[in-house]
């Protein structure tokens, strides 16, 4: 099994730099994860305090993105990494841009929660939104775990979950449309809910991207825009063999 280890360079300082940037990505991942969780909670419980916090956190995430980008640029310029080190830096550059987008989506949840805080009624599809949100949260957590552990198997099984989430999103959209037709007065509310569901679905897509970067990093194979099952068959049995 291919293993990625950022350590072991003859030049120890390089280890330190790579580890440092990796830890920053993990910090950013953790922050983004809690933003998604908070944004969803703010929305479902009409918690304006949490909603405001999510909007504030987004600024920190943006700062982290810039900082990590700068560090990656510095590593590329000074160390000219090759092979797994190069893939690590490239994967990080891509990962943080997805994390930043997840942050944006979570911020949207927070913003909409602030807008809707005055409304008191809780239509029944909140239950479905929570359900979708929980699945997305799990997927994001697993994607970040796969990144932290550089675990290809976990990355594959997490990426595979995207399809189920897409289906769930489609179902929820249908529910919202029928709701809009039944209660035209609550149209704007239902539309907001639809935006939120869309944000959650996008978060899952970004989590899926992160899984693909993990596989690229460890295996050196780019599986984007390829058949997931096919790639899994190609990559995983070889490792058990």
């Amino acid at each position: 099994m291919k293993q990625f280890n950022p350590e072991g360079h003859t030049n120890h300082q390089f280890d330190v730099e790579l580890n440092d940037v990796k830890h920053k990505v993990m910090t950013m991942g953790g922050l983004v994860e809690s933003m998604v969780s908070d944004g969803l909670e703010a929305l479902l419980t009409m918690n304006t305090e949490l909603g405001t916090k999510v909007c504030e956190d987004d600024k920190t995430v943006n700062k982290l993105e810039l900082e990590i980008d700068r560090e990656c640029t510095r590593i590329l310029a000074r160390r000219q990494p090759a092979a797994s080190d190069l893939r690590m830096v490239l994967a990080i550059i891509k990962t943080i841009s997805d994390l930043e987008r997840i942050g944006d989506e979570a911020e949207k949840l927070g913003r909409i929660s602030l807008q809707m805080a005055e409304e008191t009624d809780m239509p029944h599809y909140y239950k479905d939104l929570r359900h979708l949100g929980d699945h997305v949260k799990t997927m994001l957590r697993e994607a970040l775990d796969a990144f932290t552990r550089m675990d290809v198997e976990a990355a594959f099984s997490t990426a595979a979950k995207d399809e189920a989430i897409d289906t769930e999103y489609a179902n929820l959209s249908r529910l919202l449309i029928s709701h809009m037709m039944e209660h035209p007065a609550l149209l704007s509310h239902a539309l907001n809910m639809s935006w939120c569901a869309r944000s959650l679905e996008r978060i899952a897509d970004h989590a899926c991207n992160i899984c693909e970067y993990v596989i690229y990093l460890v295996e050196g194979r780019d599986i984007r825009h390829a058949d997931l099952d096919e790639m899994r068959k190609q990559i995983l049995p070889a490792k058990h063999g």
Partner: peptide
């Protein structure tokens, strides 16, 4: 070789992990 070497020793050498 420089993006995805197949042998672990090649990987170690070109990423500066020897010695």
């Amino acid at each position: 070789i420089f993006t995805n070497p197949r042998h672990e020793l090649t990987e170690k050498y070109i990423t500066g992990r020897f010695g």
